[in-house]
Design a binder for these strands. Sequence first.
DNA 1: ACGTTCCTTAGGAAGTAAAA
DNA 2: TTTTACTTCCTAAGGAACGT
Length: 308
Amino acid sequence: MMIDDIDMVNIRNIDLNLLTVLDVLLAERNVSRAAERLNLSQPAVSGALKRLRGSFKDPLFVRAQQGMRPTPFALGLIAPLKSVLQDIDTIFATTEFDADTADITFAVAATDYAQTTFLAPLMSSVNRFAPNIRFSVVSTDGRRLPEQLDRQEIDFAVTVPEMAPRGAPYAELFEDRYVCAIDANHPLAGKRLKLDQFCKLDHVLVTPSSDGFFGPTDEALAKLGRERRVAVTIPNFLSLPSILRNSDFIAVAPERVLLPFAEELAIFPAPLSLSPVKMIGVWHELSDRSPAHVWLRGRMTEVATAMK
DNA sequence: ACGTTCCTTAGGAAGTAAAA
DNA sequence: TTTTACTTCCTAAGGAACGT
């Protein structure tokens, strides 16, 4: 066996394809059949075997009556070879994303507003493409958000730009405008509400953080030198329709969260100009290139586009 | 003796990496 | 950027082992 005329190959430069060839050769014990399985010509596999012989400094196979007989050294390589090829498969499996089989959980921080308006259609879309993906949704606290992202406790958050940690990658998702809602049977329902009347009513304010009775509406009013009385603050939108129903309360809230209740509530524009709510998706820089995240962000963009 | 099977070698094409 | 060297593939042909 001519193995001494082959340049010694630096083991670090070994072509990993050679290991695949060796693996198939050990299984087939026949160069022609191995070539067929590898989609190579028979001489190509013969050449690969020659290079393997040079790398291992062992004949690896000797010709036998039927095909090739592995040397004891080659037989000893079977187990470690299987193991290392398995590891290589794993490495590549985790760097690719296959929606059909992906079995992962995304942890998402979102307010109930973001949950009903955006996460609901997103989950339905994701579930169609990737039935094994799960979502773990947690409520957001703006103050904890940077820390949660940093510790990878959450994969992304759906929130307003003000809450996003500085420098974190994000994508604009959708906008919503503020409208007023009042009980459909209220005397002022359906009327064009004047600012004076608006300020005299008792207001319900939805604010995730219990930091007082001051929200964006109060800010806008203050700029006009006006103010209103916030009678109730609640931490989420779930109970808002119930509170407004059969009461004299009024609320200013994003339109998308109110529209499902258009029968019981009168929904109309606010008598003052309010900047719209901008919702964004935020994630950590470390996740930026993760194939699963990239895939999910693709679905997020689709859902957001459909909402426009 | 001859055909079949199957591995090796020879020589050229194509692609890539290093050197000029 | 061009030239050179190297690698690995291919097809074609050679050769050993074996059965008829």
